[in-house]
Design a protein around this nucleic acid. Sequence first.
DNA 1: GTATGCTTTCGGC
DNA 2: TTACGGCCGAAAGCATAC
Length: 362
Amino acid sequence: MRIVMHIDFDYFFAQIEEREKPWLRGRPVVVCVYSGRTEDSGAVSTANYEARRYSVRSGMPIALAKKRLHGKGGIFLPVTHALYEAVSEKVMTMIKRYADRFERIGIDEAFIEVTEQTEGCIEKAGDLAKAIKEEVKRAENLTCSIGVGPNKLVAKIASDYKKPDGLTVVTELEVDSFLAQMPVSKIPGVGRKTEALFKQLSINTVNDLAAFSSGRLVEIFGKKLGGYFYRASRGLDDEPVKERGEPKQFSRIATLAEDTLTRDTILKTLTRLAENLQREVTQQGYSFRTIGIMFVLDDLSLHSRSTTLEKPPGKPEGMIAEITKLLDASLSQLDRQVRRAGVKVSNLERVKGQKLMQDYFQ
DNA sequence: GTATGCTTTCGGC
DNA sequence: TTACGGCCGAAAGCATAC
């Protein structure tokens, strides 16, 4: 049997800010992405648990978070992404040393497979999880929550079970009873929409879901997703823990000073983003064949359009020319004003002769 | 009928 | 009363090739 661990750092950005500024401890701390449009426009990235007590959540408008924390001594800070990246790099390197295999999921999460070094012994895995938590606390003064289970699915649900600073170990024998009474929304991939659909079908708990036949689920959700739900409700999952490969896309998006449909205004922003993006992608040693633009309209709906070229655009001007074409094609279709504009490149290929970043550290 | 590739949308962090 | 980021990967939806 496999043993997999999911490690999730608690309110990562806000925790790092607290660590850097200890006087913030005990107060509601809200880390924000300010869009620059008005004083408070933007969204909440992360909030610490004091702020969450007042129902401040990731993704909510900053103005709403301020309202919820009115008179509560809330601290609002802008994101300092370079700092979080640097901290992430350190803790991930630390965690990797404990792993047979390591898979980083975003900036503050990772799966590790530990089957071999624990010889499949779940008690050893629990001790290992404790050791990881202690080292992370000692070396970086950060807490995390860890779930241990027979696969990625169970480990992920387990890490969410007790937080912050939690540790939940689920043995193979315990999987069914652990999952049975969970709300279906705890299953990764079940978001607001799927949850609502489940509710219509009187599926509220994982147990309810497990009572559905595989055929019925496939009918409703299709072969892939239906099959996934069928297996997930039984705690079954054989996704391997695998190193993250090469990146698949790069993008930049920005909020415009005001909603608009003026071609020139939008093109200026797209051009700036494209130049910035191209610099980054080139520096990282990639070329790209697919170029896309995307818009968030004034009702927050999404619109995007992309094109794939025969070969990578040689110079920035080539990229800008494509973006201009895409913009003109889009503008004739848009019936709402543009709030945010972005550029995306994909279909990446490593440029030969380019040194990998990691080669510099040998 | 199935595999493959491209574009657009969705959802997580 | 309303309020609203910046990324990423993957799914969905579609067309085409075999």
